[in-house]
Design a protein around this nucleic acid. Structure first.
Length: 758
DNA sequence: AAATAGCGCTTTTTT
DNA sequence: AGCGCTATTT
């Protein structure tokens, strides 16, 4: 077959060894993706059906790119039918089909990290535990650790090691929280990220028929970035491959950078143990980088004790030496990097897209962005506040989620009073407690307010009923309307868009634009044909794409996966090193190379942690094809105050012969300015408090007079018309329609309405 | 009920 | 320094 000619000897061997267990140790830039791609193409050319191939990647983006490359080598059809995606995406898909064995509907919701943290917060409140002691993020990572090692909540509670650790950390109730957390998720028909893998394990463990089905389906299994799999993923692979053992894992221990979230390099050694007959292929020729860059990388990685020996070499030119930029401040670091990019661009007529700026933490992007903006260098930033984590997006998605799965309590709580519709916290808490006692979900409770004795007055009941009716009207349409049509309807009908349009600040406008962008994504989705279980492509004309299908895809997407617009092409890229894994750029800038930042102060406690930081630096270096620049600052603002910084030890680990001298500190006017303590924003003494006088007594008689139909005036909203009035005395409330502002609910005791007409 | 002021936390990385 | 959450105010 022709395509093999494009591979070197080792690569060819790795591609052709299709039967039995295979491990490929692939150094950075050695054509790892190429081997995977060609291996799939080779299997297809041998007549293997595409839907018998399972290819697991680390990111959606990697899956997408690999699919495109196979499509180039092959016909459109075949490539699309290969099961290719992240562990999470693939097994979410499987759980939608077979999760009913475990009691989950196919419409189950996937909670992201924010959802999980919110749920934990709610549980803490109910248990009367201190949020400061039981920080939701920390609790979640304990739960995550357990699940990634296949401990259920019950098993966690029984386990001495967990028990002792939590006791020592003064958090004895984590096991309890874990149990309630899992129960709540189940009740809400929801899974978090770790559950997708955990429950897949349960399914394959407890349902032999399912196990057999998927063993027969996935005759060939390929795994990318194997060094970053965790125990839960490892076990899934072991189960699926148990029958025919046609499993090929590709990885590089030197690029393992996800230990902090449970990834386990041990899996490489486990593989050797589990499949004694396995073949190993080492890819050691680097095609990506210059000799200088590769030499620098080798210098760094040899300081790690834990590694599989390999000698990475390249036939490429020596290339320029590594440049080091020394800046006096973080601001100047940005300026130096931006100027360097500008200079390179001008001298060599390079496109922006050839440059990437890498950093350890997202917070570092600001000074870099500022500098690029000043030089009018267009840039694109990945990560940070993800699109899908923005408030307005989460709000709208919550409407979608409740429509598809009303038991999803976190989403329901998010929207039940947004936009405000007079269902307050007090009422909600009462209903929640009552529903819980009756063992009903909140959504069920909303329908049986009297039966569960929630003690809600009729005014609020009517509002709740309005709300549930509205949601039900959406639910009826899920199967009859396209995803886009329904999404569009919900966006307008829910009042969410109206709420955003009222806000004319730049932020408000941007929020409305984000909503529009989400609707565009739904529209794209609606026009994308679906693929049946055995790989058949079903055109949109035959099977309409619906909102529940959209949701099942969107919950696993990240910013990296967003379609690039036409004008987005030629931009400098900014991202964290983690996000850059698997990518390459001609010109790479690694910034913030300072002790305590990189390596991070969080990861210097143990040798294992430090070595992971070093691998991270190795990954950063090996992204570069032609030119590598390292930058550090002598001072940096962190947590809002100025700190002194030492250059990172990692810089010294590179032999001097591959590095040039640090550039002189450039003295721009801004960093000559003396750094003085921030001037106080205003006088702090002698503040004559205006609001400490006796509160004006409220004229209760005036309040009693207010009735529906009256014209009133409000200090802020201006003139309006009273629509309804409810309650009496101090708790008397009115709904008032203010032209231009819309309907508002006001507690009359505070609102100080003036009656201007009847 | 809705708006505002103030407090405290964040900054490790992501599916 | 900036943000989100809580407590307070209106």
């Amino acid at each position: 077959m022709d395509i093999l000619k494009e591979l070197n000897e080792q690569q060819q061997l790795a591609v052709k060894a299709t039967e039995g267990p295979v491990m490929v140790i692939a150094g950075a830039g050695s054509g790892k993706t190429r081997v995977l791609t060609y291996r799939i193409a080779y299997l297809l050319s041998k007549g293997v059906e595409p839907f018998h191939i399972l290819s697991l990647t680390f990111t959606n983006k990697a899956a997408k790119e690999m699919k495109e490359r196979i499509q180039e080598l092959f016909g459109d059809q075949d490539a699309r039918n290969v099961w290719m995606g992240t562990f999470h995406a693939i097994f979410a898909r499987i759980l939608r089909v077979d999760g009913h064995h475990l009691g989950f509907p196919s419409t189950f919701t996937i909670y992201d990290t924010d959802d999980s943290k919110n749920l934990i917060k709610h549980i803490l409140k109910e248990l009367n535990l201190d949020v400061k002691v039981y920080q939701p993020g920390a609790v979640l990572s304990r739960i995550s650790l357990a699940k990634n090692n296949l401990f259920s909540a019950a098993e966690y509670a029984e386990n001495d090691e967990f028990k002792e650790y939590d006791l020592a950390a003064q958090k004895p109730h984590i096991a309890k929280i874990f149990q309630i957390y899992q129960a709540r998720l189940f009740k809400a028909s929801a899974m978090d990220f770790d559950d997708l893998l955990f429950y897949t394990n349960v399914l394959l463990r407890d349902h032999p028929d399912c196990l057999l089905k998927y063993q027969q389906k996935f005759k060939y299994i390929l795994v990318d970035e194997y060094q970053d799999t965790n125990f839960s993923q490892y076990t899934i692979l072991k189960r699926l491959a148990a029958n025919n053992e046609n499993i090929c894992v590709v990885g590089d221990d030197a690029q393992s950078i996800y230990g902090f979230r449970g990834a386990n390099i041990e899996n490489i050694f486990n593989f050797r143990r589990d499949y004694p007959d396995h073949q190993v292929f080492k890819l050691e020729q680097n095609y990506r980088s210059t000799q200088n860059i590769l030499n620098a990388a080798n210098c760094v990685i040899k300081n790690n004790r834990d590694q599989i020996k390999k000698t990475l070499w390249t036939g490429n030119d020596a290339g320029p030496v590594i440049h080091v930029l020394k800046a006096s401040s973080d601001t100047e670091e940005g300026v130096l990097v931006a100027h360097s990019i500008f200079e390179q661009k001008m001298n060599h007529q390079l496109p922006n897209s050839g440059f990437v700026i890498l950093y350890r933490t997202n917070a570092q992007s600001r000074s870099l962005e500022d500098a690029l903006r000043k030089l009018n260098i267009p840039y694109r930033i990945y990560g940070g506040l993800s699109f899908y984590r923005r408030k307005e997006i989460k709000d709208l998605l919550a409407y979608f989620r409740v429509t598809v799965n009303p038991h999803d309590q976190e989403s329901l709580l998010r929207i039940i009073n947004y936009p405000a519709r007079g269902i307050g916290q007090t009422s909600l808490e009462r209903i929640q407690v009552a529903a819980d006692e009756a063992n009903l979900s909140l959504w069920e409770g909303l329908h049986d307010l009297d039966a569960i004795g929630a003690g809600i007055n009729s005014g609020i009941k009517a509002k709740i009923s309005d709300f549930t009716t509205k949601i039900k009207s959406y639910q009826i349409q899920v199967k009859h309307k396209s995803a886009y049509d329904l999404a569009y309807h919900i966006t307008n009908n829910s009042g969410l868009l109206r709420e955003l349009r009222e806000d004319e600040t730049p932020e408000g406008v941007s929020r409305a634009e984000n909503i529009e962008e989400l609707l565009n994504a739904v529209s794209d989705f609606t026009n994308t044909p679906s693929i049946s279980e055995d790989g058949e492509i079903i055109p949109v004309s035959q099977k309409m794409r619906t909102l529940d299908e959209f949701l099942s895809e969107v919950s696993l997407l990240t910013d990296m996966d967003k379609e690039e617009g036409e004008e987005e092409q030629d931009k400098v890229t900014l991202m964290t090193i983690h996000a850059a894994k698997g990518l390459e750029f001609p010109h790479v800038y690694v910034t913030g190379l300072e002790e305590n930042l990189f390596p991070s102060y969080m990861s210097m406690g143990t040798r294992a942690e430090l070595e992971e930081e070093r691998r991270l630096f190795y990954v950063a270096i090996t992204r570069a094809k032609e030119r590598l620049t390292l930058a550090y600052a002598e001072t940096r603002y962190r947590w809002g105050n100025l700190t002194m910084c030492q250059p990172s030890r990692f810089i010294d680990e590179i032999d001097a012969e591959f590095v040039d001298q640090p550039s002189k500190v450039m003295h721009t006017p801004q960093n000559l300015r003396k750094v003085t303590p921030k001037e106080r924003k205003g006088p702090t003494t002698g503040s004559n408090s205006l609001n400490s006088g006796p509160t004006e007594s409220v004229d209760m008689q005036e309040i009693e007079k207010i009735q529906a139909g009256m014209e009133v005036e409000h200090a802020r909203f201006g003139k309006g018309k009273v629509i309804t009035v409810e309650g009496a005395g101090a708790s008397k409330k009115a709904t008032v329609d203010f032209p231009g502002t819309g309907e508002k609910q006001l507690l009359l005791r505070f609102a100080r309405l003036k009656i201007t007409g009847n």
